Amino acid sequence: MYSPIPEDWHEANRARWDERVPIHVASAFYDLASFRAGKDALRDFERAEVGDVTGRSLLHLQCHFGLDTLSWARHGASRVVGLDFSEPAVDTARSLAAELGLGPDRAAFVAADVYDAVEAVPDRAYDIVYTGGGALCWLPDIDRWAETAAALVAPGGFVYVSEFHPIADSLDDETGGRVVHDYFVRDPWVDTTPGTYTDADAPTVHNRSVEWLHPVGEVVTALAKAGLRIEFLHEHDATLFPRYAELERHEDGYHRFPAGRPRIPLMYSVKASRPA
């Protein structure tokens, strides 16, 4: 028997994210000043694996306040659309797009739940449907997510997922060297930790969240069941923040385990295409 999903999971998560938008906007983690000056928000492996986006349309599901979305526009995507359930995040994304001189014809943002994306976004077929790190853990139903993403891919296009590896949530926070949580757990995880990943000491009120761990096999299988062809599954030995105390920050901005220590995957990426 699985634990029931709290009835207020969606409202609790949205309130948490709404409150954290201004904290993230002001943070060194997102460094908006550098982004405005031209710094790329995307990871190097994402750019390499997605490839040239020049002249292609791209939909970013769960886009937060749009830095990755707008970065794809900067790389030449003909039109980008970002979707997020947080209205403050979407408002911020729209303001940033206007600052960069990207009108709605180049960069549009929609406030809606990801499961409602087919009805909410302005187009019905995108060359690329993209989702970045830290998105899938907020969704209870990965099959429904994959079906939604697949329904929005144009023939010959693909879904690209860049995510934190779920094995990381099975290990202890101090060393990342001991398995302390069940990798295959299906129960929702309710957290009440204040602050946020950009500022652990930030004063916050809406601290309750409901999250889910989705094993990599579950994500890949859901995409295949939705009618997409899996092109690759890549695992990466680096992550974007100091998930464990023993991780070291490298010059490229990634966090890795010290040299000589056995490595584990900390992120993964999947490309799944729709036949032309």
Rank of each mutant, 00 (worst) to 15 (best):
S170T: 15
A12D: 14
H214G: 05
A125V: 02
W17K: 07
V205K: 13
R144V: 05
E231Y: 07
D187V: 12
Y126E: 06
R14L: 14
V270P: 10
H236D: 02
P275D: 15
R208W: 09
P155C: 07
G132K: 05
A26P: 05
I230D: 01
P140N: 00
L233V: 15
Y160L: 13
V80Y: 11
L32Y: 11
Y30L: 07
P155N: 05
A150R: 01
P104F: 01
V216H: 02
V121N: 04
D116I: 02
E163I: 08
S170I: 07
D18R: 10
R79E: 14
G260T: 11
S3F: 15
V159I: 09
Y30H: 14
G66Q: 02
G66W: 03
S269T: 12
V220I: 14
R56G: 11
P88C: 12
P22S: 10
H165Q: 03
Y268A: 05
D141G: 01
F241S: 11
P122F: 06
D201N: 13
D123G: 00
A107L: 07
E211R: 15
G177R: 15
Y244A: 04
A259F: 10
R124D: 06
R261L: 11
D105F: 06
F241K: 05
H234V: 05
A98I: 05
P265Y: 11
L228C: 02
P265C: 12
R243S: 07
